[in-house]
């Protein structure tokens, strides 16, 4: 499923950001509907590919970041209609490897009205040190509840604190109501 017209699909936004990557750096790339079954298939595939060549602790973190990012999409991605074609729960994921790190990038449609709130939250996480992140995680564990979408509000916090690296994010405005959210986690090797 690709988008026609002036855009060849959201995957272009991602490739644009990773111009310097060569094809051999890409572990996995997928664009389509992210269901729970697809999430399991993609994380299983990455696990299988990396098991032989990668350190166990790095592999476990890449796996965890993929699970959390993809479950976010599964739970929160907005259905999107382009020229009359519906794309429910549309998302994409790209896992890339360089000498020093893994990068897990996901992209999905969100409602533009949530952009500021999300950007502020992720920015706040980036500015926190590891003790503050641990405290926030514990606070959310004690006080948070499972949302109707099935999440615990812990995913981004946990990615930030487990990877120890800054979260990279941007938003591409599609129209007044919808934006494309691009999110990259970095796992040091």
């Amino acid at each position: 499923m690709t988008f026609t017209g002036e855009s060849k699909g959201f995957i272009n936004y991602i490739y644009e950001r990773y111009k310097d990557l060569s094809i051999k750096d890409i572990t996995l790339v997928f664009e389509g509907q992210i269901t729970h079954q697809i999430m399991k298939a993609l994380t299983g595939l990455a696990e299988e590919q990396l098991a032989e060549v990668e350190d166990d602790s790095v592999l476990r973190r890449v796996y965890h970041v993929m699970v959390e990012s993809l479950q976010n999409i599964n739970r929160h991605a907005e259905a999107y209609e382009y020229r009359g074609h519906p794309y429910p729960g549309m998302g994409l994921v790209l896992v890339a490897k360089t000498k020093a790190r893994f990068q897990v990038t996901t992209g999905n449609i969100i409602e533009s009205q949530h952009v500021d709130e999300l950007a502020m939250f992720l920015g706040k996480l980036n500015n926190m040190d590891s003790d503050a992140l641990d405290d926030l995680y514990k606070k959310q564990m004690r006080e948070g509840i499972i949302s109707p979408q099935g999440g615990a509000g812990l995913g981004f916090i946990d990615i930030r604190r487990k990877t120890g690296n800054h979260l990279d994010y941007s938003f591409v405005k599609i129209d007044e109501e919808t934006s494309f959210f691009i999110f990259t986690s970095t796992i040091s090797r």
């Binding site: 965890h64 479950q71 564990m141 499972i146 812990l154």
Partner: peptide, 12 residues
């Protein structure tokens, strides 16, 4: 061997 963040809330 593995649990996601939503599970950690239920373990809690």
């Amino acid at each position: 061997s593995y649990f996601n963040t939503a599970s950690s809330k239920l373990i809690m």
